[in-house]
Amino acid sequence: MCTYQTEHLALRASAKGPTGWIGVTDASVYFDHPTHFRAEHALSIDFLNPSKGPSARVALEMDVVSARALAQGILDALASVPAGLLAAG
């Protein structure tokens, strides 16, 4: 099925794709049919910079276990950082 669901996030980030680094201002997160990952559905994240056009995009597609592990990994990494550094970042 197509879920048609999408979470939009504003980001301040950089990402590297085939043509080099891009500034990232937005992300779309959704669980739907992937383009490349071999599964009927995948958790997908598009890192985007709409001001640079549709090709300013770095895409990730992964299974549910990987997505949860990634989300937890991000939270764990942030949790282990001294508070002073987080405030400065």
Binding site: T35, P54, S55
Partner: peptide
């Protein structure tokens, strides 16, 4: 209109957004 000349998956990501 939103993604002239873009690859289909990039165009779809823009349209979705």
């Amino acid at each position: 209109r939103e993604a002239p000349g873009a690859s289909p998956d990039d165009a779809a990501a823009t349209a979705r957004a």
